[in-house]
Nucleic acid binder design. Structure first.
Length: 606
DNA sequence: GTAGGGTTAG
């Protein structure tokens, strides 16, 4: 396609097309402003607008047709590719310029754009090479280049040492320099480091702006510090940045991730302006701890005419999964398909999980099977689904398929497959995976992995081996490991070991009602009814009425929510109806109830 | 005519 055709196709004004005759200088028949601009400048203008519209090919055609390309044209191409996330093409264009652009000297714009490409590629070697070239072209002292260098080192290196070296050498730092350093620490998971730099920024009387506040609040969220977050919120108000939506979104997220949901709600209602990220932050923030509210916020968002995007749907689907309310999830799935975003990786992964948690593993597999791109999360979601449905053999098969597809398993995948083996009684397979994770994949087991293996052995009755494993662990077992062991002791009625496990759990995590419940069962089957009752009394003291476990069922297209002992509301009849159906089903499959707890419940009068 | 840092999902 020629420049003329490209321009005509995109309805570029005829005046611009005429002036793009490379050999023709300042056509006299045209009126300003077009006559004033030489063709190469007009072409650069066009290149920029093509990239802004995502018309990458058109930009390249135009660039290739330019008889002479100056440094601005080259830099526009490099930054254009980088702004469209085409970092490798940005980098090859930079290399092409350094190699072929004989008479073109790179400038600050060129190097900062090239460094952005290196950052996007996460390539330290390209970044360091660009650093060397920048020094060779006397770029030291350019704040733009130095800030881009810091950003590149912060993103491409494990530590922050090189970014700090560049930062120290900047004589006059600006807000971007400070913000880049804070962001570097925070994105590497060192929120305390980020806050240290933010404090230093204030001490050195550098003027913080909305960018620095957003990332400082993000640092608070990453370390779960509501105290620091609130202080920075106050500073935001003092500086008059409450009108900045990104800053307020950051604060909203901080309150959610620090579990201060009522404060988050207050913050949300106080926002005069909101964008899609505001809504998404609120929905995602409630998804785990209060999924019902998360869905309410989503309904409110829709009623206000805001169009949900992939982020929204991922959180909504996760909330549906947490509540297992398929009646809410299915229409949302329909909406996703109608919007044509069912192929989005995160959305599809969330759908796999949702159907699995709602009991429809067949639908999980259908989604998994048609996915064009799968990542490790897709495989893990499917493995967790199979595991929770008791399909251990399918999980094992799927794990092997995952290996064949070239995905390297991580710790979470091993937890998923070990869990699946545990629930399906595939002890030897599970132990084989446990051994191979270190020897074949160099993945070190953590508390969760040990917890799974203890559970695997414990469920199968190999309690002695489980105890030996705990004793030989390379680190102190946590409450999840002892908790798994306690479960095994309860299941196999091993009173003495069970008491030991419970005391360990209570040492590590006191005031957990469930542990007292376990101990109560253990004392009951040990014949120590007095101790058993004592544990129940202790347990009741532990239960905070406000945090009572809430259950819900779907019956006749309605969701009914209730807590233990709930006798209020007309819907309670439905609950009993469902419980009766379940009891009938349990009888049909010959499930035997553990009578110890039932007898004790009757004696206890509860 | 070209360049920078911040907020949401898994």
């Amino acid at each position: 396609m020629t420049t003329r055709k490209v321009a005509q196709y995109h309805q570029i004004p005829q005046t611009i097309i005429n002036s793009l005759h490379w050999q023709q200088n300042s056509p006299t028949h045209l009126n300003p402003p077009f006559v004033a601009k030489p063709p190469s400048i007009l072409a650069t203008d066009l290149i920029k607008s093509y990239f802004q519209k995502g018309l990458v090919k058109e930009a390249r055609v135009l660039f290739d047709e330019m008889p002479e390309r100056d440094v601005v044209a080259w830099s526009s191409m490099i930054s254009g590719y980088a702004s469209c996330n085409l970092y490798r093409r940005a980098w090859t264009t930079f290399c092409e310029m350094m190699r072929d652009g004989v008479n073109v000297q790179p400038n600050e714009f060129t190097f900062s754009s090239a460094l952005k490409a290196c950052k996007g590629m996460r390539s330290l070697s390209c970044g360091a090479l660009t650093h060397g070239l920048a020094l060779k072209h006397s770029m030291h002292g350019s704040l733009y280049v130095d800030n881009a260098l810091m950003d590149m080192y912060a993103t491409c290196c494990d530590g922050m040492d090189d970014a700090c070296l560049v930062f120290e050498e900047i004589t006059v730092k600006n807000a971007v320099s400070w913000t880049t350093l804070i962001a570097g620490y925070t994105h590497q998971g060192d929120g305390h480091g980020g806050l240290r730099v933010f404090r230093q920024m204030l001490l050195e009387e550098a003027e913080p702006n909305p960018f620095s506040f957003s990332i400082a609040v993000r640092a608070c969220a990453s370390i779960g510090s509501h105290i620091y977050g609130k202080q920075i919120h106050a500073a935001v108000v003092k500086h008059g940045f409450e009108s900045s939506i990104p800053v307020m979104n950051s604060i909203l997220d901080m309150y959610c991730s620090c579990s201060h949901l009522s404060e988050a709600d207050r913050c949300f209602h106080g926002m005069p302006e909101r964008d899609i990220i505001t809504w998404n932050t609120l929905i995602a923030g409630h998804e785990k701890s209060d999924p019902c509210k998360s869905l309410n916020h989503y309904s409110l968002m829709e009623s206000e005419g805001i169009t949900p995007n992939c982020f929204t749907f991922t959180s909504v689907i996760a909330a549906v999964a947490n509540m297992a309310v398929l009646s809410f999830g299915e229409p949302v799935h329909g909406k996703i398909l109608r919007r044509g975003i069912g192929n989005d990786l995160a959305v599809a992964n969330a759908l796999i999980d949702m159907y699995a948690k709602c009991g429809s593993i067949v639908n999980s597999f259908k989604i998994f099977n048609v996915m064009c791109d799968k990542n490790i999360v897709s495989w893990t979601s499917m493995l967790i689904g199979y595991g929770s449905h008791g399909y251990g053999k399918e999980a094992v098969k799927m794990f092997d398929q995952m290996l064949h597809s070239g995905i390297r398993p991580d710790r979470i995948v091993f937890v998923a497959v070990l869990n699946a083996c545990s629930h399906a009684g595939l002890v030897d397979e599970g132990l084989r995976y446990f051994k191979s994770m270190v020897s074949d994949y160099n993945v070190m087991p953590d508390q969760d992995v040990y917890g799974c293996v203890v559970d695997l052995l414990g469920r199968a009755g190999r309690v002695k081996e489980a105890y030996e494993l705990i004793e030989t662990m390379p680190f102190m077992p946590d409450e999840s490991v002892w908790g798994a062991f306690l479960g095994a002791c309860k299941a196999h009625k091993l009173a003495e070991l069970g008491k030991l496990a419970a005391s360990k759990v209570l040492d590590l995590r006191p005031k957990v009602a469930g542990t007292y419940m376990m101990l109560s069962y253990i004392y009951a089957f040990d014949g120590k009814w007095g101790d058993s009752a004592k544990m129940r009394k202790l347990m009741r003291r532990m239960v905070n009425k406000k945090e009572a476990g809430r259950s819900w069922i779907e019956a006749r297209n309605q969701i009914y929510s209730f807590v233990a002992g709930d006798r209020l509301g007309s819907h309670v009849e439905w609950v009993y109806e469902v419980v009766d159906t379940m009891s009938l089903h349990m009888k049909e499959v010959e499930y035997t109830t553990d009578l110890h707890c039932l007898i004790h419940d009757l004696e206890d009068g509860t």
